[in-house]
């Protein structure tokens, strides 16, 4: 059995004359939560839909839980759950009817107690008709149908879209519990705090190519940090300019502002020879790092 729940190699997808994926390579380990980030139109949903054989790539190999989804889609889908980014449900059905339909499509192999628990925890009224539900409540239906059969792999396209903060926290808790039971979770999101909170690893896709794969903390560590240092007396600034990976942004008699890439070791050792009054470090959030990729794309487009 492979260590990976998802293995993607050289995935290429064209929609007519428009190329959406340019050779995506990505592996997701069994039992991990991978946050899949990228600007709109970068290829997140296309990648996810290829995993379920909803769309067929022109090139590349995919294995989901060791199975080729094109060769045996039903075997893949019986072990995988999916929550689409744009969830559309049959408007005229009641919540209980649509859940029953999804249950029947899965051969009624559902733990009824777990289903009841999901409905209670997400505060979902199953007697209501889909067309009368708010977008947040529809999203709850989507979350319930994805989790109810306790799949080996969850493919979630923006799982907390439309949910209020309390419900978002409940969904994070449910996902963490699913992971604790061995479920692998592959989810796309635009909410960076959510990725930071629950993802073990992050993959960033841009223009149909994976541009970064790392843990959230590694990504943050790799980013530039701004350091503001104040001194007890005026100092000779030259040693600060020669530290590898450090850029001096501004100086005054008793202050220096520096931009540090990577670790702080060189800077701290250099500062040790000066009378330092205070030092403040401004860390970048994952959001800022992600925005960097967005901006790079905008600049390239310009």
């Amino acid at each position: 059995m492979s260590d990976y729940a998802i293995e993607i190699q050289g995935l290429v997808k064209w929609y007519g004359s428009v190329q959406a994926l340019f050779g995506v390579d990505l592996n997701v380990k069994r039992g991990e939560i991978l946050g899949f980030l990228g600007p709109n139109g970068s290829g997140k949903t296309t990648t996810i839909r290829c995993l379920l054989d909803q769309i067929r790539p022109q090139e590349g190999k995919i294995h989901v839980l060791g199975i080729d989804p094109q060769a045996n889609p039903v075997a893949v889908k019986s072990r995988v759950s999916y929550l689409p980014g744009e969830l559309h449900l049959e408007d005229n059905l009641k919540v209980e009817q649509i859940l029953r339909y999804f249950k029947e499509l899965r051969g009624n192999q559902i733990d009824e107690n777990y289903l009841k628990e999901l409905i209670e925890r997400l505060d979902l009224d199953t007697s209501r008709t889909i067309k009368n539900l708010s977008s947040g409540n529809k999203q709850k239906v989507g979350v319930v149908q994805a989790l109810m059969h306790q799949p080996e792999l969850l493919l979630l396209d923006e799982p907390t879209s439309g949910l209020d903060p309390l419900m978002q926290q409940e969904v994070y808790a449910l996902l963490k519990e699913a992971q604790a039971h061995g479920t692998t979770i592959f989810f796309s999101s635009h909410i960076l705090s959510e990725v930071e909170a629950i993802a073990d690893r992050v993959a960033i896709i841009r223009k149909g190519v994976i541009v970064e794969e790392s843990t959230p903390s590694q990504l943050i560590d790799m980013a530039m940090r701004q350091v503001n240092v104040s001194f007890l007396e005026p100092i000779e600034i030259a040693p600060l300019e020669d530290i590898p990976g450090v850029n001096l942004l501004s100086t005054s008699d008793l202050q220096a502002t520096l931009l540090v890439e990577g670790n702080m070791d060189g800077l701290i050792k250099t500062l040790a020879q000066f009378p330092v009054k205070d030092m403040k470090t401004v860390s970048h959030t994952l959001e800022e790092i992600f925005l960097k990729y967005y901006r790079e794309e905008d600049q390239e487009d310009a």
Binding site: P73, K77, V80, P84, H88, L89, E90, G107, G142, Q145
Partner: peptide, 15 residues
């Protein structure tokens, strides 16, 4: 066109 097939086809049912 209504978008409902996307989720239905994610269930273990062949085309």
């Amino acid at each position: 066109e209504e978008g409902t097939l996307d989720l239905i086809m994610a269930h273990p049912v062949s085309r």
